[in-house]
Amino acid sequence: MAALPKRIIKETERLVSDPVPGITATPSEDNLRYFHVTIEGPSASPYAGGLFKLELYLPDDYPMCAPKVRFLTKIYHPNIDKLGRICLDVLKDNWSPALQIRTILLSIQALLAAPNPDDPLANDVAEDWKKDEQAAIKMAQEWTAKYASTSSQ
């Protein structure tokens, strides 16, 4: 495997030395392009109190293409599907090499705070969300307690 680009080394160092509140990202020991990520649910959201595990992988042509990020913890969210895949523009077409792991994870945290059922990935969740937002939020809270509560991990 080719040598790790300096940019990735630098980003990793900065994630360690200057961590983002509520977010951790640690590189895997056997593959420095693979990161174990945790994101705390934003306090004013149905996901508050939850700690969500994600995986993040930096492809070979990173930073010219976006990192691949996926939720490992089950989450009830209109823009995140059963497999944990995330519908987020900056992970797709709006990726820019000026973005970093840090900014991407912040975007994901913001997505938790502001679900967007009008551009859904998990259609069933999005429909629930649009039909009865209160019930959907309650469901999200239940799922958070069931799958993402810090005590259960």
Binding site: P5, K6, R7, K10, E11, P63, P97, A98, Q100
Partner: peptide, 13 residues
Amino acid sequence: AGDGLSECAICLM
């Protein structure tokens, strides 16, 4: 200026 002209946003150098 420190942000704009001290570091390259792509390689972070």
